[in-house]
């Protein structure tokens, strides 16, 4: 009896192994000729991780026979994963996510890897900085806010997600553009803490991704004055963009699916074509909208350009 059980177990395990390797058919054309590893340089469950996993599950459905395997490498604040991706064999079987930090860290002396080490597939998210204040605040527009800030130099407590992190740089950019001065209060654990501090009226304003603040904005405890993006958000159609108000600023926290720079053009074309289709599909947009995130469809060259533009902007701003 025991022996029969052992044989059964062995068979089951063998079958399991065959099942696992079933996706890799060496003779098939790319991308069905083997697993595609996707390095996610952030911990499981975070914003970058969930959007990456969402994107690749849609890509897998679109690219018949392909198998994407996400691998989290959150070491070193996300730098390790990006470096590893840059060094990976450029055969289209190792892709990865990079974040806006790729455009910032090189100019802060934190990393040597830059956007030039990668070619992009697409960016599923590019969350803009939005100016968010408590409902009771005495200002209802960007102009009024700036006027108030000028009268109270260094008094407005501006929450950010850590000194040198993106929303801090957004606030510094704001100061420079409008000639005002804030008191910068860092919340290193992220935007949820800023939301709690704003709702508890411990700080006066923040420039950050509005998706985290959506519950409070919808409930009317917080209000959104303006958005640093090219177009208005679908969720807050009444909030004007900085561009409309005559200040063309675009600070956005993007995450992009990229490949090492020497990946063959044909393979990139396959991926980009699929991404183009996926990013414009209704299911994909719903996936993000349901999480309170404005979906984007920045694919291929446009994504490369966004990464290069942001790199140039942070270079100008952080070097000075």
């Amino acid at each position: 009896m025991k022996r029969i059980f052992a044989v059964l177990m062995m068979t089951a395990m063998l079958l399991g192994m065959v099942g696992c390797s079933g996706g890799a058919d060496k003779k098939a054309a790319y991308p069905a000729d083997g697993d595609i590893t996707v390095i996610i340089p952030k911990a499981p469950g975070g914003g970058t991780d969930t959007s990456a996993r969402g994107l690749i599950s849609f890509l897998q459905k679109e690219l018949k026979g392909s198998k994407f395997v996400p691998v989290n490498k959150p070491d070193g604040g996300g730098i390790t994963g990006m470096v590893e991706l840059a060094k990976a064999k450029p055969d289209g079987h190792t892709l990865g996510m990079v974040t806006v930090e790729l455009a910032m860290f090189p100019h802060q002396g934190k990393a040597t890897v830059t956007n030039k080490d990668f070619v992009s597939v697409c960016a599923p998210i590019a969350a803009p900085a939005a100016l968010i204040v408590p409902k009771e605040a005495p200002y209802n527009s960007l102009d009024e806010f700036v006027k108030y800030a000028k009268g109270n130099a260094g008094k407005i407590q501006m929450g950010n997600s850590g000194t040198g992190a993106i929303w801090h740089i957004a606030a510094l950019n704001f100061e420079k553009e409008f000639g005002v001065q804030f008191k910068h209060v860092p919340y290193p654990k992220g935007s949820a803490d800023i939301a709690a501090a704003l709702a508890g009226k411990h700080i006066d304003a923040t420039l950050a991704d509005p998706s985290v603040f959506k519950s409070q904005i919808d409930a009317g405890t917080l209000k959104i004055l303006a958005v640093m993006a090219d177009t208005r958000s679908e969720f807050y159609p009444n909030a004007p963009t900085f561009k409309e108000l005559g200040h063309p600023m675009a600070i956005r926290a993007w995450a992009a699916l990229v490949a090492p720079k020497d990946t063959p053009k044909e393979k990139m074309e396959v991926l980009r074509k699929a991404a183009e289709k996926v990013c414009n599909s209704k299911e994909f947009k719903d996936y993000f909208k349901k999480q309170g995130i404005d979906p984007t469809a920045i694919v291929g060259d446009a994504c490369d350009k966004m990464m290069a533009d942001d790199d140039a902007m942070y270079a100008r701003f952080l070097k000075k």
């Binding site: 911990a43 469950g45 939301a195 519950s215 409070q216 409930a219 405890t221 349901k290």
Partner: peptide, 27 residues
């Protein structure tokens, strides 16, 4: 009650709630 997740685990669950059309928060 506030729509503010205190840590990573609750943030993930908040995402799941929103996908099912439940926007956490005062409403």
């Amino acid at each position: 009650t506030l729509g503010i997740p205190g840590d990573g685990a609750t943030a993930i669950m908040m995402g799941a709630l929103m996908v099912q059309g439940l926007q956490p928060g005062p409403l």
